[in-house]
Design a protein around this nucleic acid. Sequence first.
DNA 1: CTCACCTTGTGAAATAAATCACAAAAGAGC
DNA 2: GCTCTTTTGTGATTTATTTCACAAGGTGAG
Lengths: 210, 210
Amino acid sequence: MSPPRISDSAVRRLSQYLRYLDQVQAEGTGTVSSEDLARAGGMTPAQVRKDLSHFGSFGKRGLGYPVEELRARLTAILGLDREWRVCVVGAGRLGAALHQYDGFRRRGFEIVGIFDVDPAKIGRRWRDLVVENVTALDEAAEERGIEIGIVATPAEGAQDAVDRLARAGVRAILNFAPATIETPEGVAVRDVDLVVELESLSFALTHGRG
Amino acid sequence: MSPPRISDSAVRRLSQYLRYLDQVQAEGTGTVSSEDLARAGGMTPAQVRKDLSHFGSFGKRGLGYPVEELRARLTAILGLDREWRVCVVGAGRLGAALHQYDGFRRRGFEIVGIFDVDPAKIGRRWRDLVVENVTALDEAAEERGIEIGIVATPAEGAQDAVDRLARAGVRAILNFAPATIETPEGVAVRDVDLVVELESLSFALTHGRG
DNA sequence: CTCACCTTGTGAAATAAATCACAAAAGAGC
DNA sequence: GCTCTTTTGTGATTTATTTCACAAGGTGAG
């Protein structure tokens, strides 16, 4: 699989195309046009075609893209044709919400561990899991094949969580803590900062722009 | 306040500068350089200076930026020198986590309403609030001055939630539902899609790139 | 006052991303 | 087989964002 240099925002759009394809496949539609995909995801047809063309020619001119085939290709491109073992660090409210969120599992992201530093939380049962001491992360990651870590700690604990994950060999981190974290080379990080999002809305309202 | 055309990513960076300024102010530091700000937020000094220069000249050459003053200016620019009334639509796990998250209140975002369609959830007490029927949103928004809405429903309910918010005069929406939503002109939307984030990590791992 | 040294503010240049526009397929009708 | 219609794939263009590089402004020492 050739790995072309593609922007992160383009990868996000691939995810959205895939979501739409799942939908229309359930409806039994056989093909979709770049215009259909664009309308569904709020982008332009040209952008859809360019995004897809980075990975090959999946469409038929005059007809569009075959739903089933494009779906399979995008699934493979995004690396979703397998299961990913995920752990959550931080057994607070957010960690609980993430743990119970079904959307992850549906896409092959299986949460196989929850860790915290707080002795009051360690040992509690969460559905099928028990909250573990974060010091056990290293061993657990190897045993269970954890490749993705979700950081749902307060800002103060984020860097420690990330360090432990990185040391345990986890090379992909989704960080919800409102903190800038440092990671060694080769570890991919995506920050989701809810306060920053709200502040961006505050800015938009204040300066009257959509 | 003049509204220069500034990119959304630049606004997000302003939020991060502000966060760092809060930190160093607590430590009593008087001035910071663009290099300090850059290191803290993982960007380049030139970018920091350019971002700030869009709104005026806050720094002193040879010295840096006065922490207290820059903090005050950024707070005003982002519209954080006031309280924002926020409501949550969707009283599920995620809604609960958001409701209890203290980071919002610390920044002046006050959650003053939680709404749902599910009769089983309506009426339940959540701390100081009671889950209300989403049909009451229109009236509540006006009474309580709600200006920002957080959508934390399943994908199926997202468009309905957004429509109700827009009809109630809410002009800023933070959407957590994994769905593309349509909004009338003049309504700002920020999407936070956890599955898309994880899939972007899956892509990164699959194609071996940080 | 002058000099040496910082660090900002900002045009210019470089890089990245989105859009345009159109030739090249491919199916449908006749 | 020929023509008409549709929609892809993509080089060229435009637009947006980031980085560079340096003059201008400010500080403090002597």
